[in-house]
Each structure stands twice: as C-alpha cells, then as structure tokens.
Design a binder for these strands. Structure first.
Lengths: 341, 341
DNA sequence: TTGAAAGCGCTAACAA
DNA sequence: TTGTTAGCGCTTTCAA
C-alpha cells in the first residue's frame, strides 16, 4: 500500500507577530478560548482565564484587529471627514471624537476633503473600503453620489455642525439661521445701526449671514453691507474687508470666523478707530485665544467638543446595536460678550 | 447505497455588501482575476479587464480592505500620534500626512496622547492591533515601553519634529538647539541686550531655551530671564509672563509658541510699551495669522507640511519595499523677520 | 464552561 | 493570461 502523500504545504509570508493560535497552544487551550478571554471574559472560568492572560502578557500578544474585524464584521473603526484641519473651527470636534472613540475601544480614521467634491467622493470610497462601524461628517457639503454610496453601504452616518432638514442618518448640530438672528439682536441691543457682515464663502456661514441681513431689515434698519472674502478665512482677509467697509460707514461687523474678526479689529486699530466705541466686532467660533486679546473679542461660542463626543457616542451605540436616544441633537450656541462689542 | 450527506451549512452574518466573489461570478471569471484587475491590471487582458470593470461599476463593488490587508499583510493604513490637535503647531504636519498618504492610496489613523504617557502606551497597543504599514510620531515623548513594543512589532516608524541622536527608525525633523542659537543671534544683532525666554513646559521648547541661554551667556550678555508657563500655551499665559518679566527689565522676548508671543505683544501694548521699539518679540511656529497682526510678528518658521509629506513618503516607500534615500532628514528652519523685532 | 469546524473576503503560491 | 487551492488570524455556529 503506497504511503499517503501529505497535502502540500503552502507557506505564506506572515508578519511574524504572535498569533492567537500560538497563545492558545502555549496555554494549552483551544483558540476560541483565547478569543473568549479577550472578548467575553465572564464566560471563561477564572483559572483558565488567568492562565491565558499570563501567556498573553508573557508573549506580548496583540490581537490582530484586521482579522477580528473581518470575522466579526465589526471593525471598531470610525471615520471622520473634515474639509480641512488647519486653524479650523472643527478641531475641538475632531479632538473629542478621537478621545471619546478611543475610550470606547475605537480608532479614528481621518480624511480631509480640502473643500473638493471630487476628493470627497474618492475619500468616501476609500473609507467604505475599510468597513468602518460609523462615519462622522463634519461640516461637509456632500455630493449626491456620496450620499447614495453612504446609504448603500449601510454604514451609520452622523452629520455634524448643522441641522439639515433631510439628514442622511443621525445629526448633531445647531441652527445657523438662529445665530444670524441672535447676533443681529445682540448688536442692535447695543445701539448699533449700520451693520455689516464679513463672510467666507461657505454654505453655513452664508446661512448665518442671510438671516442676519433679513432680520436687520425686519427691524427697519439700513441694509447690511456684505463683504465676501471667498475661501480665505485669514486675518489678512479681515483687514482687507474692513478697508472696503469703511467707505460705506459701518458701526458693527459680524464676521464668519474669529480670525476674520481679529483682522477687522487689527485694521480698525491700525486706522485709529476705537473698538468698540467706533466699531463693534463679533466673531464666530470662540477660539481660545480671543479672550486674551485687547480688547477681548466677542464671539459666538459653539460646543464643538460636545458635538464630537455626542457624535462618537451615537456611532458607537449604533455599532453595538444599542438604541440611542434622539438621533437629532441640537447642542445650541451662545454669544460670549467681551470687550469688542 | 445511502446518499452522501451534504456538509452542514454554517451561515454567518455578513455585511451584505457586494463581494469580490460575486463580481467574479457576474463577470464569469475566477475571483483572482477580479483581484488582479484591481491590483495589477496590466496582467489582465484588456477584454477581461473591461468586462470586470463594467461589473464593478454596475454593482458598486468596493473591495473590503480589511480582508485584503489580512491576506496580503499590507493594511495600507498609517497611524499618526500627536500630543494634541487644538491650536497645535503639528497641524500642517497632520494635514500633509493625510493628503500625501491619501494620494498614495493609504489612510491615516489618528491618535492623541494628550501628553499622557499612560495614554500613549494604550494608544500604541491599539495601533499595533491594526497592523498599520507605518507609524508617524509627531513630537511625542515616548516611554521605554512604547519604544520596545514598536520595535517588537516591526512596524516602520518615523519620528518627526526633532533630530534625536538615537531614533527608533526613521527621522524627519530639525535642530531645536540650533534655533535657540539663531534666535539669540537675531536679537543681539538688532541691539538687544536684556533677553528673556517665555516657554511652555515641553522637552523641545526647553532645548531651544537652553541653547538660547547659553549662547547669550557666551556672548557676554546679562543672564536670560526665564518664565515657564507650564502646560498652558495660551495667549493669556503670554500676557501673564510679560507682567513678570517687566519687573526685571527686558528688551527682547523669545517665546516657545506664537500664541505666547501674541500674548506678550498684547500685554506690552496694553501697558503702553511700543513693539518693537521698547520690546522686541519673537515667536515660534509662524502661524498663518501672525503676519497680519500689528505689528506683524517675527517668528521661527518650520516646514511642518514638508515634515508630514516626507514622513508619509518614507513610510510608504518602506511599506512597498522600496528603499528610500536617507532615513534622517533635516528640513531646517528659518527666522521670518517682521515688525515685532 | 470548553471545543471543533467553518467561514469572514481577500491575495499568495503554485499550476496550467 | 487565467485558474486552483490554501491560507491570512480571527470569531461564529454548533455540539458536547
């Protein structure tokens, strides 16, 4: 009788890292048991558990989450998409997202669209490929194609920094139109009559500016002067904007970002105008440093970190099949009055 | 003869997404062929390729990179660790990292240590679990344990924002000691004699401050006054620091961050001092907005985006087995002279 | 409480 | 150029 040929071996390269199987062998248990020690320790007897944990510790075993994610269809990965990171108002949100997710055992994948729709589409495809357990969209203008893809992928999505009437899925944000009205009221209540807006070219800023304008008109005041600084949210743009506005005579300026507002204040001071006596200035975002300026800048404060933490919580809850409360959260805003108004 | 029992089916839950196998079936090819169309299209005949691509397009198939990473031991994931994100000097680096990686087909995983060693260790463990193709450490004080783990995991590491003599692996940074000397020379060349340093409590800032002090001493000038603002890099801290320094009489201040420097300028102006006539101020980081201030702030410019782009390039090259040039890159720095000195 | 077997969706190795 | 087969390292299902 001819000897049975053993099946041919097909060695593959591997990372060389310790695997669950090796841990199991060393602890003299089945691989599943090691998996249970890691994921559902309460279902393993204390003796076995300790034995396995000891081996894990000694070998420095770190479970491969790629494999785990593949097997369990839960990647414990959440993606966040931001337009841009630098000097952005979204930073506290991203920060809170990473932190909250990490504490829940999740990791954040970050993507930047750079305000480009083409890039956003590519990014979303790349992200879907990673099968994240959730996606946080922060202030993104999403194309129809991206919407469709996200919906089709069935990945939980939370849109943030806005309260659109037709969200893809969950929502954590605040009302931009309300801000325009509140700021108008704030300035008018302080005796300002000739109001102006300096705004960057972005959809949410525009909505704030719009209600600001209409509300001022409704109050019977002169029309609001508007300067659009385009994509540039820089301090320098703010300076340039004020230069334009001074020709028409204004006594208060609402800026779509704090940086622009600091620029307006700087330009005003450089021209010998007193802030707030001759000119009131209010920003948006309430960056940390604006409270230390001279005069300190009045600004619209938004709870960016709350947005991030809530978004993370909603996504994790969804990933774990827990039902979370409302899927639409309004975190509100507040006007922090300081020296500049 | 009894009928052979079919092997029992073990249905598992799946995401329901289109799989490579389904695409293969629809295109009437083997699964590998679809894989080849995606990864090595040049090895597939044009006809078959087009047929497969058509099916991919029609079905909206997005390859599962978790599975791909597991099979190929290449995750196309790169991790970055930063101390913190908010108002940080590392932002351009993170921005360049995401962008460069994305263009190369990689995704960035972000982690924040919050300047905590315990968190850093946990973070590194979580990251290793994802089997990234590389890790970028930006300005991290890494514990010995973390170093060991990283080394053991065999994942390419690039340390940035510094040029330590004993890097874990690759290095992209610049010399902090040289900056201290250069700034001292800059101020002394402009006739300043009573120099001071305002610094946050961070290792790299300290090294800049140290050479600044010793170099000033070597030039035979009075000893440098030093204010340590601790962990707070805020504008307000800068204001407080100047208040302290004025008691000892200074005519130039080197700050470890631009925000601190703006605080010093603000406080000086609030006290009626003229900048730069009575007091010269120089910052570090060269944030975008400091060029628009009045007076514009002199600052040490560092190529944070170059650091990020180079780090990404090195890691991708390593992941793809390409040998990259030097594994130690000095991106240098420059002093941008503006109105404040 | 523990284990055996069968996949998750993909790619490496080998073969034709 | 295309296909077959056997994993990558884990978790799920089913069984004891």
């Amino acid at each position: 009788m001819p000897p049975i040929d053993p099946p041919p071996r097909r060695p593959r390269k591997s990372t060389g890292a310790v695997t669950l199987r090796q841990v199991a062998a060393a602890a003299e248990v089945a691989p599943v048991t090691v998996s249970r020690v890691l994921n559902t320790p309460e279902r393993v007897s204390p003796e076995v558990r300790d034995r396995v944990l000891a081996v894990i510790h000694d070998t420095g075993y770190v479970p491969n989450r790629l494999a785990g994610g593949l097997a369990s269809t839960r990647s414990r990965l959440v993606a966040a998409i931001v337009p841009t990171l630098s000097m952005s108002v979204f930073l506290p949100t991203v920060q809170a997202l990473t932190d909250t997710l990490f504490d829940g055992g999740y990791q954040l994948m970050l993507g930047q669209t750079g305000y480009s729709d083409a890039r956003e589409d590519a990014l979303i495809e790349a992200i879907i490929g990673r099968r994240p357990d959730g996606i946080a969209l922060t202030g993104v203008v999403h194309s129809t194609q991206s919407r469709t893809r996200l919906l089709a992928a069935g990945i939980p999505v939370v849109e943030t920094w806005d309260l659109t009437p037709d969200p893809i899925d969950m929502l954590v944000g605040f009302s931009h139109p309300d801000i325009g009205i509140a700021v108008a009221n704030h300035l008018v209540a302080r005796g300002r009559r000739r109001l102006a807006v300096v705004t960057a070219n972005d959809a949410r800023a525009w909505r704030r500016a719009q209600t600001f304008q209409t509300h001022v008109a409704a109050l019977g005041l002169p029309p609001v002067a508007l300067v659009d600084v385009g994509a540039s949210r820089s301090l320098a743009s703010g300076r340039g904007a004020l230069a334009q506005l001074l020709q028409s005579g204004v006594d208060a300026v609402f800026c779509s970002s704090d940086l622009l507002a600091v620029g307006v204040v700087t330009e005003a001071q450089a021209r010998g105008l007193r802030v707030p006596d001759d000119l009131a200035v209010i920003g948006f975002g309430d960056f940390d440093f604006v409270s230390g300026l001279e005069p300190a800048l009045t600004s619209v404060h938004v709870n960016g970190d709350t947005i991030g933490a809530e978004a993370a919580r909603q996504l994790m809850a969804r990933a774990e099949g827990r039902t979370v409360g409302p899927s639409r959260i309004d975190v509100g805003f507040s006007i922090i009055e300081r020296g500049s108004t």
